[in-house]
Design a protein around this nucleic acid. Structure first.
Length: 271
DNA sequence: ATCGCCTCCTGCGCGC
DNA sequence: TGCGCGCAGGAGGCGA
C-alpha cells in the first residue's frame, strides 16, 4: 500500500490527533516485524507526550521530550486514529493509547513494517543517516542526479528507486516518472543525459506532488490516518497497464521485470 | 564499490 | 468449490 504519498497523507491525517497529546500506554500484541520491537520500547514511550511528527523518506518520526521513535509501514502497513473502544481486527498489532481517549493503531498484515526507538539523535541512526535527499528538497535536481549517475550501469529504474540516491520513488512512481520523462526503465543510469535527468527529476516531483494533493491515492484500499479513503485513484499512465494503449501514442504498454519488480513502459514513447 | 538477488510475511486472484 | 501457484505498493543485507 504505502508509497511516499500515502505515508505523507498518513502523517498529515494523524498529526493533529497526536501533537501535544500524551501517550498513556503502548499495547504491543505482536512484536515480530522487519525488526522486532525492542524490549524496552513500551517503557520508553508510556506516559510521554508527542511534541512533533515529521517524515523522512517513508519513515514517520514521533518526537517525545526525551527522544524519537519511528514507524515504517512496509508494504502493507497502515496507521489510523480510532476510538480506544474500537474492536481489534486481524493484524492490529500495536496500539498507542492516548490520554484523549483516542488510539493510534498500527495494522500490518505482512509485518514488513517496523516500530523503532531512535533516541535523541534520530538522523544518526544507520537507517536514516545514509538516505539521499527528499524529492522536494532543492538539493534534488537534475545536476545532482546526473552526477550521481556517472558510470553507473544499473538500470535507471533501479537507480531512482535506491534510497541512497533519492527517497520516495517507489515502484509505481518510478514507472510513472520514467514514462513522463520519456526514458526507458532498462537504460543504464549512466547513459541518461543531463537534460533527461532534469526531466526525470521534474517528473518524480510532479507525480509525487500530484498524488499527495489527491490524498495519497495509489491503489485499491488506501485509507488515511483519519479513516477516510483517498479521494480517487490516480490515473496511472503505465503502471499495471500491460497491453493497454499508451495514453500518449496508443502503442500497447509493455511489461517486464527489472530487479524482481514489475515494470511497465511504452516502447514508442520511452527510449 | 557496484550490482543483482534473496528475504521477511500474509492475502488475493488466477488457472486448473 | 478447492487447491496450488505466483505476485503484491519496501528495502536492508549479502555474496559475487
Amino acid at each position: 500500500m504505502p508509497e511516499l504519498p500515502e505515508v505523507e497523507t498518513t502523517k498529515r491525517g494523524i498529526k493533529n490527533h497526536l501533537v501535544g497529546k500524551k501517550i498513556n500506554r503502548v499495547v504491543i500484541r505482536e512484536s515480530r516485524f522487519r525488526w522486532p520491537i525492542s524490549r524496552g520500547f513500551r517503557q520508553k514511550v508510556d506516559g510521554h507526550t508527542v511534541r512533533a511528527i515529521s517524515r523522512r523518506a517513508k519513515y514517520i518520526l514521533f518526537q517525545l521530550d526525551h527522544g524519537y521513535f519511528m514507524i515504517h509501514l512496509g508494504m502493507s502497513g497502515n496507521l489510523r486514529i480510532v476510538d480506544a473502544s474500537t474492536a481489534i481486527k486481524k493484524h492490529d498489532h500495536v496500539d498507542f493509547q492516548l490520554a484523549t481517549g483516542k488510539c493510534l493503531r498500527f495494522n500490518d498484515p505482512r509485518r514488513f513494517g517496523s516500530v523503532l526507538w531512535l533516541g535523541s539523535s534520530p538522523f544518526e541512526h544507520s537507517l536514516l543517516s545514509k538516505l539521499g535527499p527528499e524529492p522536494f528538497d532543492q538539493s534534488f535536481n537534475g545536476e545532482y542526479l546526473f552526477q550521481r549517475a556517472r558510470k553507473k550501469k544499473i538500470a535507471v529504474k533501479n537507480f531512482i528507486m535506491d534510497n541512497h540516491i533519492v527517497v520516495g520513488a517507489g515502484n509505481i512512481y518510478a514507472n510513472e516518472a520514467l514514462f513522463i520523462s520519456g526514458i526507458r526503465p532498462t537504460r543504464p543510469a549512466g547513459k541518461v543525459t543531463k537534460a533527461e535527468c532534469q526531466a526525470l527529476v521534474e517528473a518524480i516531483i510532479m507525480v509525487l506532488k500530484a498524488s499527495i494533493e489527491m490524498g495519497g491515492t495509489t491503489l485499491k484500499d488506501f485509507v488515511g490516518g483519519d479513516g477516510k479513503p483517498g479521494y480517487f485513484q490516480q490515473t496511472l499512465r503505465v503502471y499495471d497497464r500491460e497491453q493497454q494503449p499508451c495514453r500518449k501514442c496508443s502503442s500497447p504498454i509493455k511489461a517486464l521485470r527489472i530487479g524482481q519488480r514489475s515494470s511497465y513502459y511504452c516502447p514508442r514513447c520511452q527510449k
